[in-house]
Nucleic acid binder design. Sequence first.
DNA 1: CGGAAACTTTGATCTGGATCAAATCGCGAT
DNA 2: ATCGCGATTTGATCCAGATCAAAGTTTCCG
Lengths: 240, 240
Amino acid sequence: MDVARGEVLDAGTLVACRSCQARHGVVCGALSSSQLRELGRHSLRRKVDAGSEIIAQGAESSFYSNIMRGVVKLCKVMPDGRQQIVGLQFAPDFVGRPFVRESTLSAEAATDSEICVFPRNLLDRMISETPELQRSLHDQALKELDAAREWMLTLGRRTAEEKVASLLHLIATHAEPQTATSTAFDLPLSRAEIADFLGLTIETVSRQMTRLRKSGVIRIENFRHIIVPDMDELERMISA
Amino acid sequence: MDVARGEVLDAGTLVACRSCQARHGVVCGALSSSQLRELGRHSLRRKVDAGSEIIAQGAESSFYSNIMRGVVKLCKVMPDGRQQIVGLQFAPDFVGRPFVRESTLSAEAATDSEICVFPRNLLDRMISETPELQRSLHDQALKELDAAREWMLTLGRRTAEEKVASLLHLIATHAEPQTATSTAFDLPLSRAEIADFLGLTIETVSRQMTRLRKSGVIRIENFRHIIVPDMDELERMISA
DNA sequence: CGGAAACTTTGATCTGGATCAAATCGCGAT
DNA sequence: ATCGCGATTTGATCCAGATCAAAGTTTCCG
């Protein structure tokens, strides 16, 4: 990965970490203050534009990262170009695959994002020295596993309409500037990306979105901005 | 879970563990000999017939298990009965969801199996006391996560024929009594279970199996027994 | 053995979502 | 503003896989 040196903030001290989105996240929340200081000294904050790759499928990466801001999609692509998004990660998640050098998937910023990059070697050492960190990363892995299996049910057994409703529900519950009953949010994914997450085509996604709009389950403003007047209604559509 | 006391073997000593399939598995391979002895004292070997449940979806379980023999399927079922298999586990895998009491999926023996059951409390304590064990379970979780994501690609983007070929490849590479070139194995799943793993119907699975048979990629004896004359050929069908 | 239930295959038809093909929208650049 | 291009929607048609239906197979039990 190419790290933009010019974008280093004052990471040499705790100052940069103190106000950090990921300070109490999976990685940094499990470190002692001296470890945090050491990790901070070797970290680089980096801006990542929507669409640019953080880790390439099949490549070896010597970096891990924390997501500070934005949404990162995890993709698998087949030699013939077919493609499947296999996970979304939100701040302050950790991105990387401990214990294995080569990535079997790519990680790409879905929205303009900011990540905090640090060397694999350093974190690997900290993991082996810090049971609390191991435990914390184990816990994130298990949560991702639960999410992946839930999505397998969606991919294998839900209809197109249920799939789209499931996606909206997923985003709504993770990107959540919500009031008591109604919820509004910006989709971090284009229609094409939604299709790749749901195992559908763009056209089917679009049709199901308008179906949901016409039946009053959602309101759509500007393609990306969605309002869910009644979350229970949306949940009923998923029949989970 | 209801543990059949009558089927306890001589688990009070290392004797029972010494010849155990799972002795060097994820859990027991990471324990000190005194821990192994303690776990052994509180373990019960249990036979589980094909089709019977080990953990129920939505239930709290106070047990974990190791698979000694057989294949266990992890299922999710929807209120209306639609069902998806989200993972297969083979001996000597560990079965259970650390850190969370209630299971979001069911675990069921796919074949006649034997498992080694031990109390959640005890293992949870050992996990927190034994970084090596934490690491080992973390590692299994990450492998399951990789497998789940690989399967998401299969569910979302592969054709019915590719799906069936993927399943055969999965079984072949895990159940492996294989010679240099050709591989033979018994399917641990019925056609209905294969359908639930692949997000297809029984009929489509059956048709694709006969297609693969007619094209010479596989030979089928007795429904359950499959021979793959040329594994590379099978891999080519998956286009992965 | 025989007979029935369960599982699997095969056939006929239907349909949800894919594919092909235009519009239409929105947004950045001129 | 207006142009132009990519993203999205909408429409028409097609087809892979579902559904409906029936005929083998296998197993298991009396």
